[in-house]
Amino acid sequence: MKAFTQHTGIVAPLDRPNVDTDAIIPKQFLKSIKRSGFGPNAFDDWRYLDAGGPEIDNHTRRLNTDFILNQPPFDKATILLARENFGCGSSREHAVWALDDFGFRAVIAPSFADIFYNNSFKNGLLPIVLPAEMVDVLFKRMQQHPGVQLSIDLATQTIACENEIIASFDIDAFRKDCLLKGLDDIALTLQHADEIKAYENRRRQTAPWLFREALNKS
């Protein structure tokens, strides 16, 4: 897993609630069997004026210049500022892959949908939950000073702007540790293989119907 320790970058304000994963990466791009290459189609319906698809060259499409990520300096943003319930809807991890591939390293919002939140950690994208009032303050700050950079420090769980700490955030100890060290969580789980087997043996006794040999031979 990609590690996250500290990051400083430009913040793009995406001022709408309930941004769903269909909006982050539309369905036609989910036909890919890879994890990479989704960045040019992140927010595809909002970013381009012409229809897009996996077989269409994005360079031939007209950009929607009203969309924030098409406006400098936000086209170089690495931190996304959003409203509540960011990442709702479909479980598609492609949404996280698209944000990552675009160049985002963190998303700040008052709340995230649960599956998106989980998926982010698996890819070194840091989802930061801040109180709605604080998010409001940040939106105003970004409007007044477009292109201002924020610095995120995961170890101290703080966000700074121009060397001044302006917010701190909560994060699970386990997730933080995995992210700081970039740990492979499958390898971590496999360290407990004996316990998993012991659990299976216990359950084989108490719930044998879950271990029928013919289970998949109907």
Binding site: S91, R92, H94, V96, I115, T189
Partner: peptide, 15 residues
Amino acid sequence: GIGTSEVEHVLATQC
């Protein structure tokens, strides 16, 4: 529902 990384996790560990 789970993401693809978790699909891989369940495949590899059943957990």
